[in-house]
């Protein structure tokens, strides 16, 4: 399941969706990305997330599909927020259920690594000095090499 929304999400609610009526999956892995107060050398007070409606959903569904082809995972939830966010706000959620933990851990990391490179979101940070677009980082590109 892929959701792009302005609204916040609730870990407990998402965990419930991954586990209810699900006796086959012994492992559930969840990841949450948050807005931090310091990035690329500057104090951050908030950020705005722009995206490409339509392509964003298609790219995330494609990443979910690739993960499902690679690992025996059953339920997958990807939620990404857009719009204005404050420090400590949640940005992204990935949750996966699987019979075994190895697949759930690996697929969660795989989805985040591909999301960072292929899903059309852009962060514009607000600092005391003004606004700036976040620069893409080589380390995120390099992360794909392990897959």
């Amino acid at each position: 399941m892929v959701v792009v929304q302005e609204a916040d999400f609730d870990l407990a609610v998402e965990y419930q969706k991954l586990t209810e009526n699900n006796a086959q999956d012994g492992a559930v892995v969840t990841f949450i990305g948050r807005v931090r107060d310091f990035n690329q050398g500057q104090g951050v007070t908030g950020l705005t997330l722009e995206h490409y409606p339509g392509m964003t959903e298609k790219a995330l569904k494609g990443i979910e599909q690739k993960a499902k082809e690679r690992w025996p995972i059953n339920r997958v939830t990807i939620i990404h927020r857009v719009g204005s966010l404050k420090i400590c706000d949640q940005i992204v959620f990935v949750g996966i259920s699987s019979p075994h933990r190895e697949s759930a851990f690996a697929a969660t990391e795989f989805i985040m690594d591909y999301l960072k490179n292929d899903a059309p979101f852009w962060k514009k940070e607000t600092t005391k000095q003004g606004c700036h677009w976040v620069e893409a980082q080589q380390k995120d590109k390099d992360a794909l090499k392990k897959w």
């Binding site: 999301l115 059309p120 852009w122 893409a136």
Partner: peptide, 10 residues
Amino acid sequence: VAFFPPVTGG
């Protein structure tokens, strides 16, 4: 067709 800078979500 769309043109855009490297993405920075997540």
